[in-house]
């Protein structure tokens, strides 16, 4: 078994994951095994959607031509690879979907955000896929703010109402156009996250932190057709709460696994304890530099 750290958990796996952080421990909290997954989930509390079913304790995803994933009790993942499956794709959807199910089943809240280290804590960037979270975090890492997490982190309550974040794993996923935008050298084709996608994996194992760190600030990135320039606006507590609540990672899981109350409580605490801003920028132009400058101004 391979031993890793990911999402704050000790993971033992029959599958090798270059994406995760190798880590020594005695007892795993999550075990990933290869095997036969159930044909279907049954029971009154099971929600069935397209090729995916879930209840508070079980999750079954049948991902096209790649693998079936079964997650139970927040501790066990069974993967049934399909013939000819691309290993990178198999791992990608395990790390995004099956691990999100593990977290929900353990009453942990995955939060859709990339982030960088700032002073003794972290700053998080939220937004829909394609909003530019990973590119922004990577750009700031090149300016001396090390990358904390990409795409997702786990929220936890700390002392004195301080909200904390735990990173997911030390890999950023960057679309090919991010290299031009950030000035980073393009990565080789072998580093694509899937062979069919121009999205590349950039590891940061050497600077990765496994500590839960205080959340200093949250920025919501939003591209708007109507926006003419980049603007950073503070959100009121109410609007911050709404934005945080909307920003669930795998919202379908949150609802079907009956974690709304838990998410509500975490969103309330985060909006009350942290400064939250909206970053509006226009589509179709490279606003990265502008956005990062304006965010740094706000932080100072």
């Amino acid at each position: 078994m391979y031993h890793y750290w990911g999402y704050g958990l000790h993971i033992a796996s029959e599958i090798e994951f270059p994406e995760l952080l190798p880590f020594e421990f005695d007892t795993p909290e999550v075990t990933i095994r290869l095997g036969k997954t159930p044909e279907a989930l049954t029971g009154e509390n099971v929600v069935h959607k397209v090729r995916v079913s879930m209840s508070p304790d079980e999750y079954l995803l049948k991902f096209m031509n790649t693998a079936n994933y079964y997650v139970a009790n927040g501790t066990d993942i069974i993967v049934e690879p399909l013939p000819g499956a691309e290993q990178k794709t198999l791992r990608l959807f395990l790390l995004s979907n099956a691990m999100a199910a593990v977290l929900h089943q353990r009453d942990l809240i995955p939060f859709h955000a990339s982030g960088v280290h700032y002073k003794d804590g972290v700053v998080l960037f939220c937004g829909e896929s394609g909003a530019g979270k990973s590119t922004l975090a990577t750009a700031l890492s090149l300016e001396g703010y090390p990358l904390f997490t990409d795409d997702v982190c786990v929220l936890k309550s700390g002392e004195q109402n301080q909200m904390m974040a735990v990173a997911s794993y030390p890999m950023a996923k960057l679309w090919v156009d991010s290299f031009d935008k950030t000035g980073l050298e393009k990565l080789p084709e072998s580093e694509r996250v899937r062979d069919s996608l121009p999205k590349y994996r950039r590891f940061f194992h050497n600077t990765f932190s496994i500590e839960a760190l205080p959340i200093k600030s949250v920025f919501f990135l939003e591209r708007k057709n109507q926006a003419r320039k980049t603007e950073v606006k503070p959100l009121t507590d109410t609007n911050a709460f709404k934005a945080i609540q909307k920003n669930t990672y795998r919202s379908l899981q949150m609802n079907a696994m009956q974690k709304r109350a838990l998410h509500f409580s975490i969103a309330s605490k985060l909006s009350a304890s942290t400064s939250v801003h909206l970053v509006e920028s226009p589509y179709s132009t490279n606003t990265l530099k502008d956005i990062s400058q304006k965010i740094l101004e706000r932080l100072r």
Partner: peptide
Amino acid sequence: RLFLKDQTDLDSTLLT
């Protein structure tokens, strides 16, 4: 893409 995510639990930007 949002609709597709809500129905499949998948981030459609990771799909072909």
